[in-house]
Computed example of a mutant assay.
Amino acid sequence: MIFAALPQAAGAKTICTIVLDAGSSDVLHEKGECDRRATPASTFKVALALIGFDAGYLKDAQSPVLPFKEGYVDWAGKEWRQDTTPARWMRYSVVWYSQQIAKALGAQRISGDLQKIGFGNADISGDKGYNNGLERAWIASSLEISPREQVVYLSRMLRYELPVSAEAVDLTKSIVQIDQGQGGWTVHGKTGLAFPRNADRSFNRSRGFGWYVGWAEKGGRQVVFARLIQDEKRQKTTPSTRAKASLLKDLDGLTR
């Protein structure tokens, strides 16, 4: 099988790979624990974009422009320390921009909309006792989603079946990054990276979760996919980078 040759095979586990036909929702490939929920990490940005555009807080790919301010998280360095648009937010996975959207919309709106679209447990409460849901619920905290739930809501999005406006769907689709997969597939996807917490609340960097979710098109076909891996020891590259690279490599074979 393909998985024996994956770059993350040594020191990492593929929790699930699942591919659906976007139109019929027929399962084309499924391997692993695809009902196992985990932190969505930055894959949450796709759902948050849908909610933000539907609410009117996000206007289009280039607005609103929000300025970086001292005190905002800047884990990714200079790419996060500058004015950011929705398109730039998605491209560079800017966490503080997500936090500003979340604070503008509020926990009640976000949780309610996540329930409506079927995004995992829709729990925006954050770390128990820390009142930080609008800052990190989706980053190794209260919000969790399974790979199967990822592909189901994404396939519904592509069919315009979610309870959000068609314009919100189109605008969300317009800012998701495009890559080329092997076999001629045009792939629209979002990575996600998060490290679970140790007992002292430090990050366990040897057990990182890596997601790659999205949809792909080729010759009139459209499929939806999710791959979730978890490291078993610390690696030189992030699990999200490896999840994406391996999925782009494998996708053509998974759709046959």
Rank of each mutant, 00 (worst) to 15 (best):
R136N: 15
R136E: 15
R136F: 01
A137I: 02
A137P: 10
A137Q: 02
W138M: 03
W138P: 08
I139D: 05
I139Q: 10
I139V: 11
A140Q: 14
A140R: 00
A140H: 00
A140Y: 08
S141Y: 05
S141I: 05
S141Q: 03
S142N: 03
S142V: 01
S142T: 00
S142F: 00
L143S: 10
L143N: 12
L143E: 08
L143F: 07
E144G: 11
E144S: 11
E144Y: 05
I145M: 05
I145E: 03
I145V: 15
S146R: 06
S146G: 07
S146I: 10
P147Q: 09
P147K: 06
P147S: 08
P147G: 12
R148E: 13
R148T: 10
R148L: 13
R148S: 04
E149G: 13
Q150P: 11
Q150H: 14
Q150S: 07
Q150M: 09
V151I: 09
V151D: 04
V151N: 10
V151S: 04
V152L: 13
V152F: 06
V152P: 00
Y153Q: 09
Y153T: 01
L154M: 15
L154V: 15
S155Y: 07
S155Q: 02
S155A: 15
S155H: 11
S155E: 04
R156M: 06
R156S: 07
R156Y: 02
M157V: 09
M157Y: 12
M157E: 08
M157P: 08
L158H: 10
L158K: 11
Y160R: 14
Y160Q: 09
Y160D: 15
E161P: 06
E161N: 12
E161C: 10
L162R: 04
L162K: 09
L162S: 13
L162T: 11
L162D: 07
P163S: 12
V164D: 01
V164L: 04
V164C: 03
A166T: 14
A166N: 14
E167F: 06
E167Y: 00
E167L: 12
A168K: 01
A168D: 03
V169M: 07
D170A: 13
D170W: 00
D170N: 15
L171E: 13
L171Y: 02
L171C: 01
L171S: 12
L171N: 12
L171T: 04
L171I: 00
T172P: 04
T172M: 03
K173C: 08
K173W: 02
S174N: 08
S174K: 05
S174C: 00
S174P: 02
S174Q: 06
S174T: 00
I175T: 11
I175F: 05
